[in-house]
Design a protein around this nucleic acid. Structure first.
Lengths: 178, 178
DNA sequence: TCTGAAGACTTCACAGCTAAAGTTCGACGC
DNA sequence: GCGTCGAACTTTAGCTGTGAAGTCTTCAGA
């Protein structure tokens, strides 16, 4: 018996267009143009996360930890944020944030201390080591990202960034009105 | 003392451009155009997953389960796949797939049986109920997706789909060569 | 000053994933 | 035939996340 043992084909991974063609057969009122955009977005993101994951793993941190480092750097000097603030930005529950900060503190990437001027609050602060890890990850990431966009001209990059920003505004708008 | 208790601002969520501006201060050789594209992609995807999650939750299934239903439908009639095939497509380990199939079998979304022609293999098959859930989720999803893209003209949608597809091809190429 | 309410974080119980070891079956060489 | 290898799935242990309850602190009003 050959490759296809009756019920199960190998199916390595259907191409985007194949996938959409099947969807159209199964679900008539589907706009293939819309579906192509959202399917590509979703696949692209999964692939990119895999790529980032490999890079951060090579640096001895996890993708999750890199997210925290990024948020702290983005907050600007002196690189301090509260756990719930971090949690909100990363889309996590405060409980998960507590655990992540535990781990990152143990690894020396951040410090955690009580805010003495308001003892309910906790201040998470980036350490020099954490900042240096961020830099390393950033260098690797930008190389990958430049590589990813290499086939797009400068104009195309601008157009793409603009359209994605508009989608982002739109989805934030949709979500704020519940 | 006002809003800003020394070290901690409220910072609801920095806009994309604010974020990139800070990045540029902290990391000189950053191409803001590239960064805008990748940051928008990442944020957009997170928001979209939240939206999908709400919709599938309203139907009584999880996002994870919806992914499985989609893969089975995409495989075409008779909607059968092996666990490891599914795992590969969804980017999961076989172990995770086993658990998901356990749950989905218990919920009547799929059936699991041994392939009698090759008793090492297992066949996961979509049930009528599972197919109907897929349809419900699909209806909700297309409404949301159409809504999301509403500000883009038909031409723009085409251009966006095309550019994203090129990025996808590129990232797959980068990953296949390890 | 005391009390109640609200906010910020942590703790607890549990769900879902990964990595690695285990099980079962089929294929191949002797 | 028989033993071994390899493939496909499952099982187990441990990690990371969620939701809900708990603790500690601050603030406003009696």
């Amino acid at each position: 018996m050959g490759d296809t043992a009756d019920g199960l084909q190998p199916v390595p991974e259907p191409s985007l267009d194949e996938q959409i063609a099947v969807y159209q057969r199964e679900f008539q009122d589907l706009d293939p143009q819309v579906e192509k955009v959202v399917s590509a977005l979703s696949r692209l993101n999964r692939r990119m996360n895999v790529a980032y994951g490999r890079q951060t793993a090579a640096l001895g941190i996890s993708n999750a930890e890199w997210e925290v480092l990024k948020a702290l750097v983005i907050s600007g000097a002196p690189y301090r944020m509260g756990p719930s603030e971090l949690a909100k930005q990363l889309g996590l529950t405060p409980a998960a944030m507590t655990h992540r900060i535990d781990r990152m503190t143990a690894e020396g990437l951040v410090t955690r201390e009580r805010d003495e001027s308001n003892r309910v609050r906790v201040i998470v602060e980036l350490t020099a080591g954490g900042r240096s890890k961020w830099l390393d990850a950033m260098r690797a990431a930008t190389i990958f990202e430049e590589d990813l966009l290499q086939d797009l001209s400068t104009e195309e990059r601008g157009v793409l960034g603009d359209m994605l920003t508009r989608l982002l505004d739109r989805v934030e708008d949709l979500q704020s009105r519940n």
